[in-house]
Every structure is written in C-alpha cells, then in structure tokens.
Design a protein around this nucleic acid. Sequence first.
DNA 1: GGTGTCTGCCCC
DNA 2: ATTCTGC
DNA 3: GCAGAATGGGCAGACACC
Length: 429
Amino acid sequence: QNLDQLSVKFVARIPVGRLRLGFSDKTILDALSWMQTGDKSLKPLLEKAYQVLPDVGLLAREIKENGVEKACQGIVPVVGIPVLPMLSQRIKSPSEMVEKMGEVDVEPKLDGLRILIHFVRGKFVKAFTRNLNETSHMFPELAKIDKFVNCSSAIFDCEAVGLDEKTKMMANFQTTMTRRRKHDIGETSKKVSIDFFIFDIISKDGKNLMDKNYLERRKVLEETVKKGGPFKLVFHEITKSPERINKLYKKRISEGYEGIMVKKVDSGYVPGRTGWRWVKMKQGEEAQGKLADTIDVVVMGYTQGRGKRASFGVGQFLVGVKDGDKIKTTSKIGTGLTDEEFREIERRLKNLRTKDKPKEYEVRKNYTPDFWVIPSLIVEIAADEITKSPTHTAGLALRFPRLINFRDDKDPSEATTLRELEGLFDLQK
DNA sequence: GGTGTCTGCCCC
DNA sequence: ATTCTGC
DNA sequence: GCAGAATGGGCAGACACC
C-alpha cells in the first residue's frame, strides 16, 4: 500500500519469479570499460578476458587492482575455473560452409550433454556444463581419467552420451538425461553408463592451447588420450569438398547421428557463437527446411504471452492430433511466427474462443491454456524429432517444434491423425 | 507413504 | 534447443 | 551478423496435498 505504481510492478515480480534486472554480464563489461576510458573502447579486450574468466566480480577485482590491459592480457584458462564453451552456428549448405571456412574438419554430431572436463593429476577432476554449472558428481566415471590420459593437467571439451546396458548402443537424449541427478548416481550409472566423446583440448600441462589451430589441438588430443576407457576421440575427416560434406552428412544421419559438426581447420578455440568457425548441420537442413516431415495439427488453445508477446495477445498455442472423435495434445508452439503472423493468429483465435474446454479435447491439466478455442484452425508444424511423451495425451511429443504455415485449405477433419504420427515415430528408428 | 504439480542463473 | 527482430 | 528475447520437450527434485 505504501508503494507507488512502478514499485508495485517490480515488487510483485519477485514472488512470481519474473523479476529481471534489465542488464547482463555484457552490460557490466561495458561499464568496466567506461570506468576506465569513458567509452566502450576496451570492450573487445574485456570480452576476451571474460571468456576464460566468466565471473564479472573476479574480473572487476583484477581490473581495479591491475588496470584493464594488465589484467586482461594475463588471463589464460585455469584448470578448475570453467571456460565459456565454443558454440556453433547453422549454415544452409555445404558449399556455403566451404566458402566461409575453407578447409574443414567433419565430425558426427552427438546427442548428449556438452561437458568440459578439468583435470589435475592427483588433485581433482571436475565437469562443467555449457552454462558453467559444475556437474562433477554426475560422473563417477571421471575418477579413472588419470589412467587414460598422458598429462598432468588438461581441459577437455566433449559430449557425454549414455550407453544402453543391454544393447550397448548410444542412448537417446532422454535416457542420457537420467544421469543429470544428485541422488542415486551409483545405481543409475550401472543402468546407463557414460562415454565421453572428446573433440577438443584447450589447455595441457599448464599450456594454453586456445590460440592454436584446430588441427594442432587435435594432434595434441591424439597424443593425450589413451584408448580403452570411457574417453573416446570423436572421429573426423578433413575436406574442402562440399560434395564430400554432403555425403558424410547423409552417412551420419543414416548411422543414427544427429547430423554433423563442420569445423574450420585454421581456427583457434573461440568461445561463444561469433564468426564462422564451427557450424552444425542437422536433419532437414538438406531439404532447406522444407517438407522434412511436417504435420498438420489442430489449434486447441493459447496463452496471453509475456513481454513482447503480451502486445500480440498470444505467447504460445496448444496443438493436437486427431484420434477418432478425440483430439489429443502433442505440443505447444511458441516459435516460427513473425510478429505479423502473431497478430494474424490472434485475430483468428479470438473469434474461436470458447469458455469451456471442448468435449473432444483430451488435455493434461498442466497444459491448460489461458483461452480455449473450438477446433477450426489448422497449422503446419515442423520438428526435429518425435519423442515418447509422459505428459502429452497423444503419448508422443515434438522436439524443437515450430510453426511453418497456416493451413487455411484444411479443416479439422483433415488434420494429422494419431495413427499417422505413430507411423512417423516408428519410421525414425 | 503415495500422487500430482511446478520449477530450473536446467539440459537439449 | 528454434526462431525472429532491432541494431 | 550479432545479441537479446520470446518460446518448445522433458528430466530429477522439491513441495503440496491426500
């Protein structure tokens, strides 16, 4: 009662978990530059330091004590302190890859957890995720790394993938995720053991390798990791032929991999997603995002949206497939629409609103939308994969779903059926 | 002690 | 993760 | 081209409820 309107807005966001400060670590980097020079001129230097010491508090202390130049130049990766991982972008075609990167190294893309391993012989071995969270406890397998590497210390970059106990095949992502836990690790690790597929090394025996090119790092890697344990090198092939890239891509897809990673041979380890150094190619890319198994689903309801989407009146919408007389949910769609398409779908859906859930809808409680709509609008949806779902009433869900198009030419009776979706699911294996 | 629901500087 | 948009 | 901000499924955990 004692707060003014603006204060109420921000105080109310705390209990509902929606408070944002409105600035990120990047803004702090700007501020540190301003502190010294009154402009942003030192930002590139600060960003480079931040990549290997991504803690603005520690960074600020270093700078206060030693000045930006001295502090930043002395910063190299330290085993035990997480480094921001190098990330990949997408490129539409292999020819564009070669155009932008020249000679490249092609690796399979594995569907697991990105892990950076920090190892100091006799002292510790730690694991950090992409977001710099320490997850060492998840991987008791790491304890024996000292037997499988030739070094006194190192930082490795790898993908951790589960191994199915019975089939000895690589587990799917959902199974690998069961290892992301803090209780009963011992028990779970017997059911799902982990292999670490290593593809990079950024520090060895106290030497910083981030500025070495990829092939040099790869060479060091081959001299460092011994065969036989759960630590395996990701296989690779060097090429500058777009045709070869395409062929490898198709081969890896047929072998069950998620796709390929294509890496510029002549490139250091540059954290973040900037530049054309690492590129990914996943299923559907070769068809240029076209009809790589899209489905036509019924829009069942929608939510009001937050932030920018609140102005459109739609944040996300619930979609389902036909199963006899019933309509069962298979996904929510929250991306793939332009601003104009959001306005368009709001105009349509508001006319279809109905107070109560239509009788033919089967929806788990947690998917209850802000507004129900009667079955009328059909939309075309793409996804990377169909998965078994514990929560969607169709029993199947979509991984990375996005809108492709409105299907005004179709009515609900022509929507994809559950049977058809199950057919597509079986086809994946 | 079970079940259901919600959350995560979560993982993808 | 995917996608779109303002810069 | 980049950074930021919308949003997805689904796992283990935490907690509320019965």
